[in-house]
């Protein structure tokens, strides 16, 4: 059982790390600011979500698990809002550098 859970953790966290990697690559490779914003707002939220998912079997109590999920939810909210904020600021400036 614990081996299966460890395996689950490893797979989920590795996948999370992969999405962080993809987000960074996108941030570096994508040609203009707005597409880079996509890379940022979509990949890293998913990455953090998967890391949290992978850590869930390892927590000591249900409470810690709920706290992890709360952290992810807050980041998701912040990420969604700030992506729109930055997006509009870029649009307003005609900022496709």
């Amino acid at each position: 059982m614990s081996v299966a859970l460890d395996l689950f953790s490893i797979v989920a966290i590795a996948a999370g790390a992969f999405f962080f990697f993809a987000g960074s690559v996108g941030l570096l490779r994508f040609p203009d600011s707005l597409t880079r914003l996509h890379a940022l707002s979509k990949a890293d939220n998913l990455g953090l979500g998967l890391v949290v998912l992978g850590l869930l079997p390892r927590v000591a109590s249900l409470l810690d698990a709920l706290k992890l999920v709360a952290i992810w939810a807050l980041v998701l909210l912040s990420g969604a809002a700030s992506a729109q904020l930055i997006g509009r600021a870029l649009r307003r400036r005609g900022g496709d550098e």
Binding site: L34, H38, S41, L76, A80, A83, Q84, G87, R88, R91
Partner: peptide
């Protein structure tokens, strides 16, 4: 803004 490929900006 979380949906694939779309980002409402204005």
């Amino acid at each position: 803004s979380l949906a694939p490929g779309s980002l409402p900006v204005e």
